[in-house]
Computed example of a mutant assay.
Amino acid sequence: MTVYPFTAIVGQAALKDALLLASIDPSIGGVLALGERGTGKSTAIRALAALLPEIEAVNGCPYNCAPDRRASLCEACAGSGPGRVARIPAPVVDLPLGATEDRITGALDLERALSQGEKRFEPGLLARAHRGFLYIDEVNLLEDHLVDLLLDVAASGENVVEREGLSIRHPSRFVLVGSGNPEEGDLRPQLLDRFGLCIDVRSSANLAERVEIVKRRDAYERDPAAFVRSWSRQTLALRKRIVRAREALPGVTMPDEVLEKAVGLCVALGADGLRGELTLMRAARARAALDGETCVTEAILRSVAVPSLRHRLRKDPLDDTDAAIRVERAMEDVLVS
């Protein structure tokens, strides 16, 4: 299947930036895109798969184990010693809304058990998503027991399956990406808090932009392969930019005065816990690395504050002000040079 190119997406700068930041620093904690239908949320997220640089993995490992990270190898790779290294596409795995727990975590391979009498584990979506992205469309409609499962794995970085006579554990560290329409239901607070960045996605009101969207989509549907080729140069350039940003990220610094303003912003907004500060700091560093900067400035901090904090604000029944506006107002008070 030919995927619509990430670089050909018109508008939606906030969503594209959030996905790029999460691909540079997975510790940011993932991306949540909320908005009405038909705004390109799924298109942008699925386009990420063709954009991301390849990763190195142990050849044949179903969990995409990184050969240079001995401490995080699965039992098979750890027991067999260093294996051949293969370059594979960075995983971007769809978790269908109707997926069963067995499909997500993995289960006994029934066909092999019945035909050969052998108990063998069939890895699930969490195995495929390791070291990549796990995408959940309509995430706000996900069943509660599956939300609990994902929260446990996201917190521990490990998937544990103990049933049907099996006892399996394997690494499962992924960037969680979700999309949904808020009018169809809210996310549980525990799951909402797990997303590092939250983006409000809306249809463009600009006539020229909407015309360009329709023209590009029509060209893609008429000849997908030719359309993808026509954007290959831009895709390659952006992929190289991601690689450079990843390499530069460890060297990006955040001065104490900027960090103090980040913490002060979270305090002013009444954000619970410290996850807001940590996300703000990581997103700002990733933004600086993407822009080729070696130091986080107040301007960079401003650019990532809304997506980092808008979903962490306490709800006030007497104040129906949009969360993004509340963050903007707080920045005007706190981020003053």
Rank of each mutant, 00 (worst) to 15 (best):
I88F: 03
E164Q: 06
A237F: 10
S203H: 12
A262N: 07
R329I: 10
L48T: 11
G273P: 08
F195H: 11
E298S: 11
A226H: 12
L134M: 03
S303T: 08
G196N: 12
R120C: 04
Y4K: 03
R241G: 13
V31M: 03
D272A: 14
R244S: 13
T39I: 04
D333F: 15
Q116D: 14
G276F: 09
R128Y: 05
V334K: 13
A268Q: 12
M254E: 13
R69F: 08
A8K: 00
G35L: 04
L150H: 08
A66C: 08
H170P: 13
L313E: 11
A286Q: 12
E158V: 12
S80A: 15
A44N: 03
A99D: 00
L176W: 07
E293H: 15
I242T: 06
L176A: 11
V296E: 05
D218S: 14
I300S: 00
A245F: 04
G30S: 09
A13Y: 02
C65N: 10
V263H: 04
A14I: 01
A78K: 05
H170F: 15
V3E: 13
L238T: 11
Q234Y: 09
V58W: 02
R169T: 14
A22D: 02
R194I: 00
Q116V: 10
V139P: 04
L15E: 03
R216N: 15
L52N: 07
E164H: 07
I242N: 06
L313D: 14
D319C: 09
V304W: 07
L146M: 15
L309A: 08
E183T: 12
A205I: 10
A205V: 07
G124V: 01
V175A: 08
T294F: 08
K240F: 12
A71L: 13
D200M: 04
A44C: 04
V263I: 15
K315W: 14
L51R: 02
A283G: 05
E277N: 06
M254S: 09
A14G: 08
G132A: 00
Q190N: 12
S179D: 10
V161G: 06
A22S: 02
L187R: 05
V177G: 08
A208K: 07
K41E: 02
A324N: 05
I325S: 10
L114N: 01
I45H: 08
A127V: 02
S203I: 10
K119H: 14
A225E: 15
V263W: 13
I242A: 09
S303H: 03
R222Y: 00
D94C: 01
L192M: 12
P82Y: 14
I168M: 11
E111F: 06
S23R: 00
Q234N: 11
S156D: 15
L192Y: 05
P123K: 03
R188G: 15
E209M: 06
L249N: 04
R302H: 02
A14L: 07
G276T: 03
